[in-house]
Amino acid sequence: MLTTQSIMIKDYPQNERPRERFIINGPQSLSNHELVAIILGTGTKEESVLQLANRLLAEFEGLRLLKDATLEELTKIKGIGQAKAIHLLAAVEIGRRLASHTHEDRYVIRSPEDGAKFLMNDLKYLSQEHFVCLYLNTKNQIIHRQTVFIGSLNASIVHPREVYKEAVRRSAASIICAHNHRATRS
């Protein structure tokens, strides 16, 4: 096993590099400093990105204080310019938004009318047939909406595989399928 002392990322064996381990084993297999290193992207001439990430986390005593760091505080650290600081702050903000996201602001379907009301404005003026699925959680809240197929003027052919694939991917408890009937004029 190589140590991080003055070893650059390119000197690491391929299977020990953070990006490659992320691809093979997933993000949960990486330490905090390895995840921060991926966000930073590169180190400096004097130290690898892993060393820079370690130093950054040491400066802020881990992720807990890093989440409150300012652009100015980050750019004071040698090796962290404005671009790297912005990448870090953007990642922190995404995490903050995900953590504060509640399911209470999701639209709830209690009746067929609720489903129709949710979709009607988007579907009524389309020039082609659209097959749309709403994927719901156990509380009948919409967790995802997807146009599965766009057909011709008066037909929309959909394979069930396409409907269920997304349901499984989203761990949906139920599905509502809808399509618009395109009115034709003679």
Results as ranks from 00 to 15, higher is better:
Met120Arg: 10
Ile86His: 10
Ile94Cys: 15
Leu30Tyr: 11
Tyr125Asp: 12
Lys76Ser: 10
His103Gly: 12
Leu126Thr: 15
Asn137Leu: 04
Phe131Asn: 03
Gln82Glu: 14
Thr75Gln: 11
Glu73Arg: 12
Asp114Ala: 10
Arg106Leu: 12
Cys133Val: 01
Tyr135Arg: 03
Gln51Ser: 13
Gln82Phe: 02
Tyr135Pro: 04
Leu40Asn: 03
Leu89Glu: 09
Leu134Trp: 13
Arg97Val: 04
Leu50Arg: 06
Leu71Tyr: 10
Asn32Cys: 08
Met120Ile: 03
Asn140Cys: 00
Leu126Asp: 08
Asn137Pro: 08
Leu57Val: 08
Asn54Gln: 12
Gly81Lys: 14
Gln51Val: 13
Ala90Met: 01
Glu104Ile: 04
His87Phe: 11
Ser31Phe: 05
Ser127Thr: 08
Val108Pro: 03
Leu57Ala: 10
Ser111Glu: 05
Glu73Cys: 07
Phe60Ala: 02
Asp105Cys: 02
Lys76His: 12
Arg64Leu: 00
Leu50Ala: 03
Leu50Ile: 06
Asn54Ile: 02
Leu126Val: 12
Leu74Lys: 14
Tyr125Trp: 12
Asp122Tyr: 08
Tyr125Ala: 07
Leu50Asn: 13
Val49His: 03
Leu126Ile: 07
Phe131Tyr: 11
Gly41Val: 06
Asp68Leu: 07
Ile39Gln: 13
Ile109Glu: 00
Asp68His: 14
His103Met: 05
Ser100Lys: 09
Lys84Leu: 04
Val36Met: 09
Gln141Lys: 11
Glu34Val: 07
Val132Lys: 08
Ala37Asn: 08
Phe118Trp: 15
Ala83Arg: 13
Arg55His: 14
Asn32Glu: 14
Leu88Tyr: 09
Ala99Lys: 13
Gly62Met: 01
Ile39Cys: 13
Glu46Ser: 11
Glu104Asn: 13
His103Leu: 09
Glu61Asp: 09
Gly79Lys: 11
Ile80Asn: 00
Val108Ile: 07
Ala37Asp: 03
Asp122Gln: 13
Tyr125Val: 05
Val49Leu: 05
Thr102Val: 11
Ala116Tyr: 15
Glu72Phe: 01
Leu52Pro: 04
Leu30Met: 12
Asn121Arg: 08
Ile77Tyr: 09
Val132Phe: 09
Leu65Arg: 15
Thr138Gly: 02
His103Trp: 04
His33Asn: 12
Phe22His: 07
Ile109Leu: 07
Phe131Leu: 06
Ile77Ala: 08
Leu35Lys: 15
Gln82Ile: 02
Ser100Thr: 13
Glu34Gln: 14
Val36Ala: 06
Ile142Asp: 03
Ala53Ser: 14
Ala53Asp: 05
Arg106His: 11
Asn54Cys: 07
Asn32Asp: 15
Ile94Pro: 14
Glu61Thr: 03
Ile86Cys: 01
Ile109His: 04
